[in-house]
Computed example of a mutant assay.
Amino acid sequence: MITNKSITITILFVLSLMGAYSIYKPFLLSIVVAMLLTMATYNLTKKLIKYFNSRKLSAIFTSLLLILILFAPIVYMATTGVGYIAKLDVETINEVTSVVQTFTQKIPYLKEWSQIGLSDERIAGYIQESTSYMTTAGSAGLGFVKNMILVLIFYFIFNFYGEGFFDLIRALMPVSRMKSAKMIHEVSSTMEVVFYSIIVTAIFEGFLFGIMMSYFGFNGLLLGVIYGFASLIPVIGGAVVWIPVTLYSWSNMDANTAIFIAGYSIVVISIIADTFIKPVIIKVIKEDLLKSTIEINEIVIFFSIIAGMSTYGFWGMILGPAITSFLIAITKVYIDYNHKEQSKLIT
């Protein structure tokens, strides 16, 4: 029975949520990402708490581990990569475009495109546009660094308070404690599989590319890190890295090196590693290492990452699968509830 007291409490609770949203709105994305990362590393945190016999030490260790695995490579890529970009001059750009124009002379459609799209006037325009993009990227990069720091802070807080935080979420959900625990478990298990799969496959593919780049005298560590993050972009990720490297090698080294880099990137990484070895890695992580029993399909996870990154950018690879798994979990609860209500009406 709904009483005046319950209505008053509900209104006050809704108003407090609205007030909190207005205050914490700038930090909402960082809070959600940190919460999902906490869910992804929940089992690891429990083992560390048992090992250290201290929740604080466990929270510090997992935060340092997150910095080492996720954020340190981004900072290294940003700082070192800027130095290499600054060394690119107009002469190098002209050499590369000249190679492309020569290559496309024998291909009818590409010949017309190269004559128009790679003319001196167009190249000057591209350089001018890229300068403005670099300025925009710089400001966006500062925002991303701020978000990274906030994610780390909230991640430490969530890990420190851990179980109490998840108990609060379960208590707030308008379903039975058993169903709320099951929903949180499904989201947490999905995030765990996605998080570890992303980390392992990115390191694996980045390692393969970096080793090959080191053999030809490039900075293998930098290009490996860049390729690892680029591989997170489904379908076209690796091509964003190996195509420019191939063109540079063709114009500044020799054709055989460029052909080998392109062939190695396509056959060894894109076909063998990404198509055949990556699903095996995901299966091993899911079934053997994490002992996960979630039923969400790998294809659904794949498309949820695409959708998430197209909407939220970098953090979409975490938000996409989490939102999708929560939608699947709440749909199951709704179907079960609706089925029971229909059964009551029949009886």
Rank of each mutant, 00 (worst) to 15 (best):
2 I>M: 10
3 T>N: 04
5 K>F: 12
9 I>W: 05
12 L>V: 04
13 F>T: 02
14 V>K: 08
14 V>P: 00
15 L>C: 10
17 L>R: 05
21 Y>R: 01
22 S>P: 01
23 I>M: 08
25 K>P: 00
25 K>D: 00
27 F>P: 00
30 S>N: 08
34 A>M: 04
36 L>Y: 10
37 L>G: 12
38 T>W: 14
39 M>A: 07
39 M>N: 05
40 A>V: 02
40 A>E: 02
41 T>H: 11
47 K>A: 11
49 I>D: 11
51 Y>I: 10
51 Y>C: 13
56 K>Q: 11
56 K>C: 04
59 A>H: 06
59 A>Y: 13
61 F>A: 13
66 L>V: 08
70 L>N: 14
71 F>V: 12
71 F>L: 12
71 F>I: 07
72 A>M: 09
74 I>F: 12
79 T>D: 07
81 G>L: 06
82 V>P: 03
84 Y>H: 04
91 E>T: 09
92 T>R: 03
93 I>W: 03
93 I>P: 02
95 E>W: 05
95 E>Q: 09
96 V>M: 11
97 T>L: 13
98 S>W: 08
105 Q>R: 13
110 L>G: 07
113 W>T: 11
114 S>C: 02
115 Q>A: 14
119 S>K: 06
122 R>A: 14
126 Y>M: 04
134 M>A: 15
135 T>V: 13
136 T>S: 15
138 G>W: 08
139 S>F: 15
141 G>A: 11
142 L>F: 15
148 M>G: 11
148 M>P: 06
149 I>N: 13
149 I>S: 14
149 I>V: 15
153 I>S: 09
159 N>T: 08
159 N>E: 14
160 F>V: 13
163 E>G: 13
166 F>Y: 12
167 D>Q: 15
168 L>Q: 07
168 L>N: 09
170 R>I: 15
171 A>V: 15
171 A>L: 15
177 R>D: 13
178 M>S: 14
179 K>A: 13
181 A>T: 10
182 K>W: 15
183 M>Y: 07
184 I>L: 14
185 H>N: 15
187 V>C: 11
189 S>T: 09
191 M>V: 09
194 V>S: 05
194 V>D: 08
200 V>A: 14
206 G>I: 01
206 G>A: 04
208 L>G: 08
210 G>H: 06
212 M>A: 11
218 F>S: 04
221 L>H: 05
224 G>R: 11
227 Y>H: 07
229 F>W: 11
236 I>K: 06
238 G>N: 09
241 V>P: 02
242 W>Q: 00
244 P>N: 04
245 V>W: 00
246 T>L: 06
246 T>V: 06
247 L>W: 00
252 N>I: 04
255 A>N: 00
266 I>V: 02
269 I>K: 00
270 S>T: 01
271 I>N: 01
272 I>W: 01
275 T>C: 10
276 F>A: 02
276 F>Q: 03
278 K>F: 02
286 K>P: 01
286 K>D: 01
289 L>E: 07
291 K>W: 11
291 K>T: 01
293 T>D: 09
299 I>Y: 12
299 I>A: 12
299 I>M: 09
300 V>Y: 05
302 F>V: 02
307 A>E: 07
311 T>S: 10
311 T>C: 10
312 Y>F: 13
316 G>K: 01
317 M>S: 10
324 T>W: 08
326 F>E: 05
330 I>D: 01
330 I>T: 03
332 K>I: 13
334 Y>W: 14
334 Y>P: 01
343 S>M: 14
